[in-house]
Write a protein that binds this DNA or RNA. Structure first.
Lengths: 240, 240
DNA sequence: CTCTTTAATGGTCTTAACGACTATAAAGAG
DNA sequence: CTCTTTATAGTCGTTAAGACCATTAAAGAG
């Protein structure tokens, strides 16, 4: 902690990278941009950008999230630090330390290409890139880490509601779990479990909605205030 | 991701801070240094230091861990990234982004004062600072985050064995949980639960050892290879 | 209209896991 | 020897989870 000469070392650049997930048609989607410049021009990458000299990484991430998703109410979205990637050779041109974030978006409007990207799209997770075209930089690893983190946090937190609009049905909430985990869940058992977990959801009295156009209308719920679930809602087959 | 002019922005300095825990006499201890320089001279702080231009944050953290603990076999110790702290005013002198790590040390030899610290000591967590002398910088928050993370990971990973020597008794393993969680656990139930969890521990055939000088000698176990525990070993009272 | 399809909802049954508790075994202290 | 301490084994009742079945309320086909 000594030696505070700010030019004693080669300067580090600090960026943020975002793994932004949403649920579309019951499937997990991720927001990717197409790079317009070298290196990795034409390749897909996670949205992100430089941290400005006077802002925290969290603020930079939320700013980028607003730019790329085109959403107005970015303040309420779930944004969480994932980890920091700092391998010296992760960017071929200079030393860049990247603080990665995971964001969960309930509704999925069309993406906006940020200033630095040729385009931005929501792509189904798992089919978001051809096998011959990995994501730019170490973004494949970041995205995999983010997916694993989200899957794990669904088990013991109320995070799943971050994917949902303010009012949602239990079927929609179940689709969140199924899309992230890639597993089928029994509707009746899921319902029993969710309602038995205090603070996960709270009922909206008298409200109901048709979900897929067919079937019995489902009651509506709001997100509860519980941060941690006890007991947790475990994935069917251990960790995949 | 454009604008790769490395002098376009005010340079960031990147440091690592370490929350190093161990178990001593059944109690959780944390490694703290006493700062020798301004700011916060004389205050306690987490050990840490600058990331060098050619190393990753993980390498810097392991290097600092070796320096401060004086341990030789630092390669096998559990070292895990916690999160990155990047508030612009977290250091009064310049913009410093710190990548925080959590380390778990089994045995606890006396600490070594690093080059930048006046002294280094293992202190019982919870009594590691007087109420009128907070840790330097935002280290109180980092340490609290690290403690919470370790407590949570004990529930669903085999992390507790990282606190133990290569061979340990179930009583010693139970003391790890008790020290971190600050809760009493029933020895018989704990034993049943640990042995029923595949991959947590494996028995060392025929080996036994007296633990506290009294009582029946306990069988010895080695750490298993399970990364995740299913089902998890939950804390008694939800999240404290 | 009736029948089929679909999804929500309500319930049962069996098994696994957990907490509280009791009992026994093996060591040292006196 | 007895007493204390810790490890280990087992029991009992409650709770939670998975598999499965039944009912309900809507839309659409005919």
């Amino acid at each position: 902690m000594q030696g505070y000469d700010k030019y004693a070392y080669e300067p580090f650049a600090v960026t943020v990278d975002l793994a932004v997930f949403t649920i579309r048609e019951g499937r997990l989607h991720v927001l990717l941009v197409e790079r317009g410049e070298q290196p990795y021009a034409g390749r897909r990458a996670l949205p992100g950008g430089f941290v400005r000299p006077d802002e925290a990484a969290e603020a930079a991430a939320r700013r980028e999230l607003a730019e790329e998703t085109g959403l107005a109410d970015v303040a309420g979205l779930h944004l969480e630090q994932l980890r920091t990637y700092s391998e010296p050779d992760r960017d071929p041109r200079m030393r860049i330390v990247s603080v990665a974030f995971t964001a969960l978006v309930p509704d999925a409007p069309e993406a906006q290409a940020g200033s630095d990207a040729a385009r931005a799209d929501w792509l189904p997770y798992g089919e978001h890139r051809p096998s011959y075209a990995p994501l730019a930089f170490d973004h494949d690893r970041i995205l995999a880490d983010a997916h694993e983190r989200v899957g794990a946090k669904l088990e013991y937190t109320g995070l799943a509601t971050a994917f949902c609009p303010p009012e949602f049905t239990l079927g929609e909430l179940r689709q969140v779990y199924q899309a992230v985990w890639g597993a089928e869940l029994d509707p009746a058992n899921f319902r029993r479990k969710v309602l038995a977990t205090p603070g996960l959801v709270e009922a909206v009295p008298g409200a109901a909605r048709l979900t897929g156009g067919r079937g019995k209308p489902a009651a509506l719920y709001r997100a509860g205030d519980a941060a941690a679930l006890h007991p947790p809602l475990l994935r069917p087959e251990g960790r995949p």
